[in-house]
Design a protein around this nucleic acid. Structure first.
Lengths: 200, 200
DNA sequence: GTCTATATAAGGATAGAC
DNA sequence: GTCTATCCTTATATAGAC
């Protein structure tokens, strides 16, 4: 869709997303958002009453992406291991297209005053995974581990390289392409790890 | 050491550490730091010329903690697997005492303009680990994996729960004590994982 | 709906007295 | 070294014309 066809409200939301994701709430300026949107500051306040309100709109959308529901795989009757493999594949793919997402979300939910934001996290995902583990474990198909710790571990393995990206690229003299390639390879590597951990 | 015995410079550094770690660079106010230190703003600028300079002092100290050198284990002639186990133990212990550290460091190194900060990361740690892996692998003591991906994974597994802490606590109705207990248990859990991955 | 101009406040930094 | 007072710039937000 060409930019000219976007409504003013859409242009603002698009610009706000870009600026907030890149600079965080504290680092963002309403003027920057107006510039990116190609309008002036006053219009921002006309559409969204305040910086807080505008930010909330963006966050509400992004939290749903960062903690995905993944209905496709998790509501199907797949073995636990395949669900995890599917998650790794989808999630690293997602982050490759949304490099700023993790830091943005983690910053927001860690803000002391903004504890409301935490409540917006879709909570069922990990609960369902744990139930799925227990079902397969009781059939002897999985090794005895702590499913909560395991779920945290899988998320950490997927997300962390995107958080430490500048360091990794500097350490191994990699450009953006090399990093992306590394993340593509990472999918298969992590699948090997989780199979080794879960197979009895 | 009682607070009264601290020099003004020490009081400022202590207060700056607290505020910067908690609120980040953009979210911190010189006034807040002065208040915590029990002095006034002007004195901050007398001791450290600017907010930037003061921040740099704090960051320089913290980056050394977040990317530790761990000479104790890694310069000794231990098997790779034991080095990793030692790392997990030490590092989770460190983070349990420094909950804000990961987000603080990751935010700073991800700032576009502040790419100077990246250069301050001690880079040898992962390089040494990879060399150590290769040595043991050639003796047939380890499974064939990608050592770089493995090192990223171990760091991610250790660090991520501290980043997602508010969500985890909310999701599982855990207070600070329960979370800390979970992290203590996590040490042994992760050791199991890495043994399963690395053992041929 | 969109703009210019401006109110109001906050934040970093400095001057100058003690 | 430490304080009060203040300068200067920047930010959010609003008023009012078109």
């Amino acid at each position: 869709m060409p930019e000219a066809e976007l409504s003013t409200e859409e242009k603002i939301l698009k610009a706000a997303e870009e600026v907030f994701m890149r600079d965080g709430y504290d680092g963002s300026r309403m003027q920057d958002i107006a510039d990116v949107a190609g309008i002036n500051k006053a219009l921002l306040h006309y559409y969204f009453r305040s910086k807080d309100k505008l930010f909330e709109k963006i966050f509400d959308a992004k939290i749903q992406v960062f903690f995905p529901r993944l209905e496709q795989a998790f509501y199907q009757d797949l073995p636990f291991m395949e669900k995890v493999e599917f998650f790794i594949e989808q999630y690293i793919g997602l982050l490759r297209n949304n490099p700023y997402l993790p830091l943005f979300v983690l910053n927001t939910i860690n803000k002391r005053d903004n504890s409301d934001f935490i409540k917006k996290v879709p909570a069922e995902l990990s609960q369902r995974l744990i139930m799925s583990y227990n079902a397969d474990f009781q059939q002897g198909k999985l090794r005895a581990i702590n499913p909560l710790q395991f779920v945290i571990s899988v998320m950490g393995m997927c997300i962390f390289p995107f958080l430490g990206r500048p360091v990794l690229q500097n350490m191994f003299k990699a450009d953006s392409n090399a990093f992306d390639k590394l993340m593509e390879q990472r999918i298969e590597e992590l699948k090997v790890y989780i199979r080794l951990i879960l197979t009895p």
